[in-house]
Amino acid sequence: MDICPNRSRTVNFLIVATASVAAVLVVHGVTFLIARRIGRYNIVDITWGLGFVAIAAVAATLGSGDLFRRLLLLALTSLWGLRLAWHMYVKTKGHGEDPRYRDLLGGNLAPGNVIRRIFGTQAVATLVVALPLMLSATLGPAPAALNVVTGIGAAVWLAGLTCEAVGDHQLRVFKRDPANKGAIMDRGLWSWTRHPNYFGDACVWWGLWLVSIAGWISLATVASPVVMTYFLVQVTGARLTERYMKDRPGFREYCSRTSYFVPLPPRSHTR
């Protein structure tokens, strides 16, 4: 049973949501100014994880719901978001613009076009995906029966974070070796799935959603992990990455023996 009446919970949700919008606007606004100054917009990938950390912090601070769940979601989101931000910082440091953003802008670097196509889109996506964090922060303690769901969610989150971090590390080590220049990474987790980082990301958000569940009303936010997974699989994640890799030598053969998204044992021969 919730610790506050429905009306108070609604007011608290509006406060959390409004403050979250403000936090995301500040994070993306500062990033936009930095991007204009240095002349490349791929640093928005660093902001992606930080935007969720900001929302989790707002929810934990302003939410009036169960304190343990607020702090747990803040800790889990921060571990994921800060690791991802650092990884993207290291990955993009010293490099030029990402071809994806260059193609997306089509040479039109007008501030309005950049905000609409990159920063505004990511800000809206961040708010949509983070809805479970906002709502959960306003809900009281979950029934004891849901403790199992919380445990499962934490396990899914941990599996996803591990898969994402290990995949990123393996790819980074692979690229450091000059002998691998131009080669397809097909070792470790990358022999089980062509996108262990994106698969791990999806698991992280399904895990966070499960942890956020405090009652029937929490099911209303299931669209958030669904949207995140859809984008990771079909839009900005795996599908877009493969569009840029399809003509690389050996990529088709790699696809023929390696699962697209969900990790599966590699096929031993091409069909």
Rank of each mutant, 00 (worst) to 15 (best):
Thr126Leu: 04
Ala110Met: 10
Arg116Gln: 05
Arg116Asp: 03
Ala125Asn: 10
Gly107Ala: 00
Asn108Trp: 08
Gly120Met: 02
Glu97Lys: 00
Glu164His: 09
Phe174Lys: 07
Ser136Gly: 01
Leu171His: 12
Lys175His: 15
Glu164Trp: 09
Thr121Trp: 12
Ala123Leu: 02
Gly153Pro: 10
Pro143Arg: 06
Met134Tyr: 03
Ile115Lys: 05
Arg176Phe: 13
Val128Asn: 04
Phe119Pro: 04
Leu135Phe: 03
Met88Asn: 08
His169Arg: 15
Glu164Gly: 08
Val90Gln: 15
Pro111His: 09
Ala165Ser: 15
Val173Tyr: 11
Cys163Ala: 13
Gln170Val: 11
Lys91Glu: 12
Lys91Gln: 12
Val148Tyr: 11
Phe119Ser: 03
Gly96Val: 01
Gly94Phe: 06
Arg117Asn: 00
Thr162Cys: 12
Leu104Arg: 11
Leu139Asp: 05
Val124Cys: 09
Ala145His: 08
Gly96Asp: 13
Ala155Val: 14
Gly107Ser: 02
Asn108Met: 08
Gly153Met: 05
Ile118Trp: 01
Ala144Phe: 10
Trp157Ile: 12
Asp177Leu: 13
Val149Gly: 07
Ala142Ile: 07
Val128Ser: 02
Gly160Phe: 09
Ala144Ile: 02
Gly106Ile: 06
Pro99Asp: 11
Leu171Gly: 08
Phe119Ile: 07
Gly112Pro: 07
Asn113Phe: 01
Ile115Glu: 01
Arg100Cys: 06
Ile118Phe: 03
Val156Pro: 10
Pro99Glu: 11
Pro132Leu: 01
Glu97Met: 00
Thr92Trp: 13
Gly153Glu: 05
Asp98Asn: 03
Thr126Val: 03
Leu171Ile: 11
Val173Asn: 11
Val166Gln: 09
Ile152Gln: 08
Gly120Pro: 06
Asp98Ser: 02
Ala137Leu: 08
Ser136Thr: 02
Arg102Cys: 09
Val129Arg: 00
Gln122Ser: 06
Thr162Leu: 14
Asn147Leu: 12
Lys91Met: 01
Met88Arg: 07
Gly96Leu: 04
Leu135Thr: 00
Leu127Asp: 03
Glu164Gln: 14
Gly106Leu: 04
Gly140Phe: 04
Pro99Thr: 07
Glu164Leu: 07
Val166Pro: 09
Met88Lys: 07
Leu105Val: 05
Gly106Asn: 02
Ala144Trp: 04
Lys93Arg: 14
Arg176Ser: 14
Ala155Gln: 11
Pro143Ala: 04
Gly120Lys: 05
Pro111Glu: 05
Asn147Cys: 11
Thr150Gly: 12
Asp177Gln: 12
Trp157Val: 08
Phe119Thr: 04
Thr121His: 10
Arg176Ala: 14
Arg176Asp: 14
Ala144Asp: 13
Val156Asp: 08
Leu158Ala: 15
